[in-house]
Design a protein around this nucleic acid. Structure first.
Length: 674
DNA sequence: CAGTGAGCGAGCTTCCGCTTGACTT
């Protein structure tokens, strides 16, 4: 007989807490939500106050039975899920699903013995308003997803999907592509002077003309640049100002899920999904705190360990106590930031003890350095800025040298060091050379995983647990895909779906929609608004519009184009249709004639080496993985995983495929590389 | 390692946010 049963969300957390609390307590895990709306139907009674129908999904059944058995034997049931909207909801679903009589609800922010003991002394009731905010969020997302997706099946193609988060994600990528397409590069010129002071050369850039700042487009073409050069060649270069100052740089805050994914992508080239898998393994082994969090909180204990480590290893002057506050709106602060559980455990030591594989080491090292460096002193640079007058022009030279490395000792950031010679006001310099440089303004960059996640978080779209899965979903649906540089580009189907949604359901795909929803949810949580009328206010106009759009929008206009070409099989006109995998030629005499052909793609045509008839083109597996196969499929089943370069192997005449470094032969028995 | 579309109308696709495991090839 166990006196107290405590239920938390994660089994790893349960294990840790069990160690603190001893045998009067049994700690079990809910493994996240135990109940949800059914997958196979809407599960919301829209005629009856949006009454949700909750079921226990088959996946959760086994664990649910374990919990059910355990509650019979326990005297007190303590619900210790996270202190946020979803956590409160999990507690409520546990109470409802397990039919608990008088459950205690406790919360704690750090997993330490004292924090948990304090929490146990202060149990409260479940906060039904917070639960209602979660229910409203869940029900709204279900209505949007399960009403709009079937609309797309009917009007575009089967298997498509739409949702508050995924559709905005695709929209960002589509709109960025539009900006790039519309972008017109503009020419501009810069002028750099190479100057000399007693055999010490240094460079200065032209910044002002007639006292006015020369902006990026101030010098528009070669003619203008040449004219300025002519003036400057005969000018005297006189120092008019020397400014010396100290510039200080602060360390970066510890990681949240989003910044960890961004930094691991930038520094380690890990995709977000992979980062989360490695982080999970570190978490389960007790090496890092919880890895799905938007909090920047740090426990007192961890701050003390960091202080001990820094002062012990680098000296007192390298340590500065710092606390961080989250900037991201909608953060729910149930956890700590992502940090090493035991800051004194140095990455290298764990590696030499062979406790970590290569990927785990790299991620742990990154997390450890980020956390430790966040408790270190500022880096200090000596910066010099020199203004040089040449007639009515002003040049500027700047230099900086590192004076004290501080946190940079363990978290290096890119900066350039350049030293200027000792210079004083009114000195005259010798001009060695003037260099005009032609530039063009650059279009905005396509999103990478890192920048897309950053943008989503900045707009409060999605949560730490969903950034990586959302990116997977929109790629699996074939809405967006990564190009050779791992940057996202929209597909044909993604572009069509988003343009359709923007035109007919602008509110749902508005980037601000989530933020507005969150405001309502906050009011519901504070009991300043009721959840049923809030949902009704959204639902009524939405469903009215949906009904109208089912009438108004015609599939033909979206998914069909005329052509001048003729079907090679039956001589009927060919049309272009839009399917799940993009546009393709189809015979207008369908279904009598089933002829189809792929659209001609840009780039070199690669003849299929197997059948000699078809071309090898990019395709996708059902899981969304890209491969390269013969377009005569199913007549010819030639396929490759790697991208063919278009050239043939000099040794065996098979196709060469691209590798990270160069190319290799697609024939495994050949083994030729280059 | 894989394909789209029309319409008849079986049965199915689909959301976001919590959390990991593995009955079977």
């Amino acid at each position: 007989m166990i006196k107290n049963l405590v239920i938390v969300e994660s089994p790893t957390k349960a294990k840790t807490i069990q160690k603190f609390l001893g045998s009067d307590f049994q700690i079990l895990s809910s493994y996240g939500h135990i109940r949800d709306l059914p997958k196979s139907e809407l599960g919301v009674d829209t005629e009856n106050n949006f009454e949700p129908k909750y079921i226990i999904p088959t996946k959760a059944r086994k664990n649910f039975n374990i919990l059910k058995k355990a509650i019979v034997e326990a005297e007190t049931i303590i619900l210790a899920s996270d202190e946020d909207r979803e956590g409160e909801s999990i507690a409520w679903h546990l109470a409802q699903g397990l039919k608990l009589k008088n459950p205690q609800r406790i919360v704690f922010h750090e997993i330490t013995k004292t924090a948990i003991e304090n929490a146990l002394k202060n149990p409260r009731e479940i906060d039904i308003h917070l639960v209602n905010a979660q229910q409203a969020r869940r029900i709204l997302d279900r209505i949007v997803g399960y009403k709009l997706s079937p609309f797309l099946w009917k009007k575009v193609a089967r298997g498509l999907s739409a949702g508050r988060v995924q559709s905005v994600t695709v929209r960002l990528v589509v709109e960025r592509e539009n900006e790039i397409k519309a972008f017109k590069p503009e020419e501009y010129w810069t002028v750099t002077a190479l100057l000399d002071k007693n055999e010490n050369e240094f460079e200065a850039s032209l910044v002002k003309k007639d006292g006015k700042i020369v902006p990026k487009l101030g010098i528009k073409n070669k003619k203008e640049a040449d004219k300025i050069l002519a003036d400057l060649n005969k000018a005297d270069y006189k120092i008019v100002n020397v400014e010396k100052k100290e510039v200080r740089r602060n360390p970066l805050p510890p990681f949240t899920t989003s910044t960890l994914q961004q930094e691991a992508s930038k520094k380690l080239h890990f995709p977000a999904k992979f980062t989360m898998g490695v982080a999970q393994s570190l978490y389960e082994r007790g090496l890092i705190t919880y890895h799905r969090t938007d909090s920047l909180n740090l426990s007192e204990q961890s701050l003390a360990s960091a202080k001990g480590f820094i002062t012990g290893s680098y000296g007192e002057n390298y340590w500065t106590s710092r606390r961080y506050k989250t900037k991201s709106k909608g953060a729910q602060e149930a956890h700590e930031a992502i940090r090493p559980s035991y800051p004194e455990k140095e990455p290298e030591a764990l590696k030499t003890a062979k406790k970590l594989d290569d990927k785990q080491f790299k991620l742990y090292d990154l997390i450890w350095r980020r956390f430790i460096s966040g408790q270190m002193s500022q880096a200090i640079f000596d910066a010099t800025q020199i203004d040089i007058e040449a007639e009515n022009y002003l040049f500027r030279a700047s230099g900086q040298t590192l004076k004290f490395d501080g946190f940079l000792k363990i978290y290096p950031l890119k900066f350039k060091e350049s030293e200027l010679p000792e210079l004083t006001k009114d000195e005259i310099l010798k001009l060695l050379k003037l260099t005009p440089d032609q530039h063009f303004t650059q279009p905005p960059a396509r999103y990478s995983e890192a920048t897309l996640i950053k943008t989503l978080e900045e707009n409060g779209i999605g949560r730490p647990s969903t950034y990586a899965p959302t990116l997977s979903t929109v790629q699996q649906r074939n809405y967006i895909q990564k190009n050779d540089q791992k940057k996202f580009e929209p597909t044909e189907i993604g572009t069509v779906v988003i343009n359709l949604l923007i035109e007919h359901f602008p509110k749902i795909v508005d980037i601000k929609f989530t933020a507005e929803m969150e405001e309502d949810l906050d009011k519901i949580a504070e009991n300043k608004k009721q959840w049923v009328p809030t949902i009704k206010d959204f639902y009524d106009p939405f469903i009215k519009r949906l009904d109208e759009k089912y009438e108004e929008v015609s599939k033909k206009e979206i998914a069909q184009e005329e052509t001048n070409e003729i079907c090679p099989k039956c001589q009927s006109p060919l049309i272009i249709r839009l399917g799940r995998f993009g546009k393709f030629y189809a015979c207008s005499n369908f279904p009598k004639c089933r002829h189809t052909a792929p659209l001609k793609k840009e780039g070199p045509e690669i003849k299929c080496p197997k059948c000699g008839e078809g071309d090898v083109t990019e395709k996708r597996t059902k899981k969304g993985k890209i491969f390269y196969g013969c377009n005569q499929y199913p007549k010819c089943d030639f396929a490759l995983w790697d991208k063919p370069t278009g050239e043939k192997c000099p040794e065996c005449d098979s196709l060469l495929v691209a590798t990270k470094k160069g190319a290799k032969c697609s024939n495994k028995d050949c083994g030729h590389t280059q």
